[in-house]
C-alpha cells in the first residue's frame, strides 16, 4: 500500500467515526438527542472546547505540570533501575537475597500506593512523580538486569582476551549492553511514567491533565472529559514521537528488528 493511500484510509477512519458521532448528536438515532449529548457530547462541542483550552491558554500550565512529572518520574526511575539492576546483576548473592521482595513489590498494583504517596508527599507534583517512579523503576530494573546477565559469552570472552580488566569490561561491554536493553524498553517506561503522572493527578491534585479530566467529570461535563482525553492522546503521541527520535539516535548500532518496519 502506498504511503498516500494509507494516509487517506487512516484519515477516512477518523472521518467516518466523527461523522457517525455527529449524526447521533444531531438526529434522534438513539432516543433523544439531549440524552445522547449528555452522555457522549458532540464532536463540534469537543473541538470547540479544545480550541478554548488553547485560546485561553489555560491548558499550557496543565500540560507543563504533567510533562514535568513525567520527565522527573522517568529520570528518577530510570537512574534507580539502572543502578540497582547493575548491582544485582553483578552481585548474584545480593540479587538472591532481595529476589522475593523485588517480586513482591513488583506484584503490587501501583495504584494502591497513590494514597500513601499523597500522605507522604502531599498533593503537589512529588506524589505523582513517586507513583511514576515505582512504575518506571521495575521496567528499567528488569531490563538492565537482563542486559547485564545476557551479554553474549563470546563477546565477553573476546573482550577478556583483548586484555580488558573488570572496570574496562564494565565500561565497554556490560554498560552498553545494559543500556541497549534499557533503551529498547524506552517506549514502555516513558509511557508508564506518564500513566503514573496522570493517574496521580486524577486521584488528587490541583493541576495537570489528569486534574482537568477529573474536574470535568466531577461536574458531569462530558465535553470537558472528552476534550481532556483528546489533548492527552495527542500529548502521548508527541512524547512517543520524541522517544522514537531519541531511540533512533541511541540505537543506531542495532540491526532493524524483524517484523518492525
Amino acid at each position: 500500500m502506498s504511503r498516500a493511500r494509507l494516509f487517506t484510509l487512516q484519515i477516512g477512519v477518523a472521518f467516518v467515526f466523527i461523522a457517525a458521532w455527529h449524526v447521533c448528536a444531531q438526529y434522534p438515532v438513539f432516543g433523544e438527542v439531549k440524552n445522547f449529548r449528555f452522555f457522549f457530547s458532540a464532536p463540534d462541542d469537543v473541538g470547540l472546547r479544545i480550541w478554548k483550552f488553547f485560546a485561553t491558554g489555560m491548558i499550557w500550565r496543565h500540560l507543563w505540570i504533567t510533562l514535568t512529572e513525567t520527565i522527573l518520574a522517568f529520570v528518577i526511575g530510570a537512574v534507580g533501575g539502572v543502578v540497582i539492576g547493575f548491582w544485582f546483576a553483578r552481585q548474584p548473592r545480593v540479587a538472591a537475597v532481595f529476589d522475593p521482595y523485588v517480586k513482591m513489590a513488583n506484584a503490587l498494583p501501583r495504584v494502591v500506593l497513590a494514597p500513601i504517596f499523597m500522605l507522604w508527599f502531599g498533593l503537589g507534583i512529588w506524589s505523582k512523580v513517586a507513583l511514576g517512579v515505582t512504575l518506571v523503576f521495575f521496567i528499567v530494573f528488569f531490563n538492565v538486569y537482563q542486559g547485564v546477565k545476557e551479554v553474549s559469552p563470546t563477546v565477553l570472552a573476546n573482550a577478556r582476551m583483548l586484555g580488558m580488566n573488570e572496570r574496562q569490561l564494565l565500561r565497554h561491554v556490560y554498560w552498553p549492553s545494559a543500556l541497549s536493553w534499557m533503551f529498547s524498553s524506552l517506549h514502555t517506561s516513558v509511557g508508564f511514567a506518564l500513566v503514573g503522572a496522570v493517574v496521580g493527578e486524577y486521584l488528587g491534585s490541583a493541576a495537570g491533565l489528569g486534574y482537568v479530566i477529573h474536574e470535568a467529570e466531577g461536574t458531569f461535563d462530558v465535553t470537558g472529559v472528552f476534550a481532556g482525553m483528546v489533548v492527552l492522546a495527542f500529548f502521548v503521541l508527541a512524547i512517543d514521537y520524541l522517544v522514537t527520535l531519541a531511540e533512533n539516535r541511541l540505537l543506531a548500532w542495532r540491526p532493524p528488528a524483524a517484523g518492525q518496519g
Binding site: 553474549s152 570472552a157 552498553p176 549492553s177 548500532w253
Partner: peptide, 8 residues
C-alpha cells in the same frame, strides 16, 4: 562466533 562488540 561473532565476537565483536555490536555497539561499537
Amino acid at each position: 562466533q561473532d565476537a565483536l562488540m555490536p555497539w561499537k
